[in-house]
């Protein structure tokens, strides 16, 4: 079983991203479970969403405190909150950022880091507004390439079934972002552990 955490700000689509990723994994025959951080939601405030996926049934119905991987929709969150809290050593982080993984040297010491300029992609395809692009579909495209746990085709099929507005643009954005992924080498010691099934 893998557990993921998605960081965003209210209104950026973090919860939808977890739902889309769950749908994509479900389409590949995996068991899935996704949920927002339990509590109240406010636009602009940091929000988190979660995802469990497994080949077998998922029995756990508790919160996720030690994720295997992270998706960060907004690079400013890295300074604002401890996004890596609880992330297992050797875990992976995908960040929506203009710069490459080398711009996050602290994270790269312990984790495998990937970056993609999902905001630029979202703007290019007219998703959201110029100042507040909605990056969730683009970053999921990059996540498919980054994680290898889900195919880009499944991500696109999930978008087609769940996103009622600008569906084609969102699909194209996801595919475009997959090609723009930049990754760091995984830290030598933890590389294997990152992919290990830890629970279930």
């Amino acid at each position: 079983m893998r557990e993921l955490r998605i960081h965003g700000r209210g209104g950026q689509g973090a919860v939808i991203a977890s739902k889309l990723l769950a749908t994509a994994l479900f389409l590949e025959g995996k068991s899935v479970q996704s949920f927002p951080a339990f509590g109240v939601e406010r636009r602009g405030a940091p929000v988190t969403a979660f995802l469990r996926t497994s080949d077998g049934p998922i029995l756990l119905r508790c919160e996720i405190t030690k994720p295997d991987g992270l998706i960060v929709l907004d690079p400013t969150l890295i300074a604002a909150v401890d996004v890596a809290a609880g992330l297992k050593d050797g875990g992976s982080i995908l960040v929506n950022a203009e710069g490459g993984p080398e711009t996050f040297p602290k994270l790269a010491e312990r984790f495998r880091v990937g970056t993609v300029d999902a905001s630029a992609v979202a703007r290019e395809y007219g998703l959201g507004s110029k100042n507040q692009p909605i990056v969730n579909t683009a970053i999921l495209g990059a996540f498919a390439a980054f994680s290898g746990i889900v195919s880009i085709d499944s991500v696109c099929r999930a978008i087609e079934s769940e996103v009622p507005f600008k569906t084609a643009d969102n699909v194209t954005a996801a595919r475009a972002a997959a090609g723009l992924l930049r990754t760091s080498e995984a830290p030598a010691l933890a590389g294997a552990a990152a992919r290990e099934v830890t629970r279930g």
Binding site: S18, K19, A22, F26, S31, V32, Q33, S34, F35, P36, F38, I58, R61, C62
Partner: peptide, 12 residues
């Protein structure tokens, strides 16, 4: 049904 653990949790 339990709040959040079911109400807001997506699954197939």
């Amino acid at each position: 049904l339990d709040a959040f653990f079911l109400s807001h949790t997506s699954e197939p």
